[in-house]
Amino acid sequence: MKILIVDDSSTMRRIIINTLSRIGYTDVVEGENGKNGLEKLGQGGVEMIITDWNMPEMDGLEFVKTVRGQNAAIPILMVTTNAAKEDIVEALQAGVNNYVVKPFTPETLKEKIESLLG
């Protein structure tokens, strides 16, 4: 399963990649922001998206809305520092399937991914 990780922090991308590899997902592709994420998504083969919210050029919310305009089925998990109820609701309305607030534990990421894929 190929997973697209969109986050402007290279440290955070590494942490997510590392967590994914520990739970058996090693096929990943990275994007630095929403715009770059769309390019990577356009290259095909992506079956799941993990995206941050606050990014330059195109933020996660705009990215999710654009993706949902093209693909209604792909599971999207948002991993962000935005913890307010309004933010979570806004992300869900935009088309996010599940939501993780940073900092997270590997167990949480695993649980959320499995619930999306299950």
Binding site: N54, L61, T81, N82, A83, Y99, P103
Partner: peptide, 23 residues
């Protein structure tokens, strides 16, 4: 142009999963 910012980050600590139950 800068990245969008988090307005609620001040309530977010560095303890993992502090906000999991809320989310």
């Amino acid at each position: 142009e800068r990245p969008s910012i988090s307005h609620t980050i001040a309530q977010t600590g560095t303890t993992p999963d502090e906000n999991k139950a809320h989310a």
